[in-house]
Nucleic acid binder design. Structure first.
Lengths: 243, 243
DNA sequence: TCGAAAGTGTCAGCACGATGACAGAATTGG
DNA sequence: CCAATTCTGTCATCGTGCTGACACTTTCGA
């Protein structure tokens, strides 16, 4: 981080405790936890597992705008998105910041369950959605009775958390431009990153103006195009050279 | 990170590829992987498990200076230190850097096994040591046949990787002084951190001179005392205020 | 349809940490 | 015990990113 990261001494410490930073820190932590969602090859359950477990999994339909689970929930269980998109966000009311978007096949909640931590974010259906739910006791009996699934879940958790850790480590010691380029490449879904600059800045632990400066540079170079709450990657190869 | 992190442009990119940085990056990654060793409450096997598995675990004695496993080994298996201290290091010959020290009860190798990655560091007995070894196939059959142990291993892996990730996230956006203070507090065993400044700098992704400057400041304030390859914490409370 | 709130764009000054280089001190192996 | 090597200590210069502030734009709810 830059020298300017903090005002040094008592004043800086005081400002830091007033929540301005603690908010960012919580946002950062929640966002990176959300990066550990099981997706694609990293998911603990294969499609055939999901169908085989039809009896154990409880299906729930969530209409657009409905909350699926809420920040602070303890032992919320495992959530599997079957259809639609589900937004993960933090903060109440208007101050909420969207951290991530779950898509069909994504699995969430297992890591929080294993760590005994409350859900750090709220999930809300962006579109009419269909999700499957595995309760905490259901999860326990599943891993106790089905060694094959337990084994796969073990690998899945390890891979997801390790991948996330490696991503963060890959940012340390890099220039902000490199950090941003990597983050965009990793986050892009169909060449779009639907995060506000505030959220991205929090994830990287930098100030928003610093991030904005870099983004405008990248845009001026024709690598990305910026609009409200979304960044479009127009030249992945060019971005990759920067990271 | 600071602007100075990289020379910008082609020259910096070129320098970066020549290995000067790649060495530090590998050191950093290996060091943080080593931070995921199972220790104390985070260990996957309880002492009673270890005794119960006496038949499955192969005991090996390593005299002082002997290698236990070597960097690059694939499917090396799970290693449990029973007695003595085992040093984890990186780099061949004289250029090696010590990144961690295993102590009795520590469990290593399981994460690498689950990720299908080669051991990123070499283990060498610092003292005459006694270690237990569980081969890769042995591990597989263990988790397949013993659901209770598999379940505990699942929590253990999740907790260790998540704790490490949280540690790293806690560093982002903090001033170097804060980063150093936290790292020292987390790494200290009996108020001593036995790492070279080069290794610590690599873990934080900063330059060694920058780290040295901060360390000397902390020493001048009476919080730590610096000697060759070890830093002693003389005022934990004071350090905690800085973090 | 309007207004409030959140998001984005921008700026000047400043301080921290990178860089690269060099010297002394403590180890370690031969 | 000496030589080679590593580790620590230190410096001047430079550039990045922080800070705090403000204007503009888009969105969304009332």
């Amino acid at each position: 981080m830059d020298g300017g990261v903090n005002p040094v001494g008592a004043v800086g410490q005081a400002l830091r405790r007033l929540g301005g930073d603690s908010t960012d820190a919580r946002l950062r932590q929640a966002a990176w936890v959300a990066r550990c969602v099981g997706r694609g090859d990293g998911a603990p359950l294969r499609p055939e597992d999901v169908t085989a477990l039809a009896g154990v999994l409880e299906q729930r339909d969530a209409s657009r705008g409905t909350a699926v689970f809420t920040a602070g929930e303890q032992r919320s269980g495992v959530w599997i998105v079957r259809e639609g998109r589900v937004e993960l966000s933090l903060g109440s009311g208007r101050r909420r910041a969207v951290i991530h978007v779950l898509r069909p096949g994504d699995v969430d909640g297992d890591i929080e369950l294993l760590l005994g931590m409350p859900m750090p974010y709220t999930a809300r259906a962006l579109t009419d959605a269909s999700v499957l739910h595995l309760s905490a006791p259901g999860f326990e009996s599943l891993v106790q009775t089905n060694p094959a699934i337990a084994r796969r879940w073990l690998s899945s958790v390890a891979r997801r958390l390790a991948a996330s850790q490696e991503r963060i480590l890959g940012l340390l010691g890099k220039s902000l431009t490199e950090q941003v380029a990597r983050l965009l490449l990793d986050e892009a879904v169909e060449n779009r990153v639907e995060l506000t600059q505030r959220t991205i800045a929090a994830m990287l632990g930098v100030q928003r103006p610093s991030l904005n400066k870099v983004l405008k540079q990248l845009e001026a170079n024709g690598l990305i195009s910026i609009s409200y709450g979304t960044i479009e990657l127009t030249d992945r190869a060019g971005l990759a050279k920067r990271g």
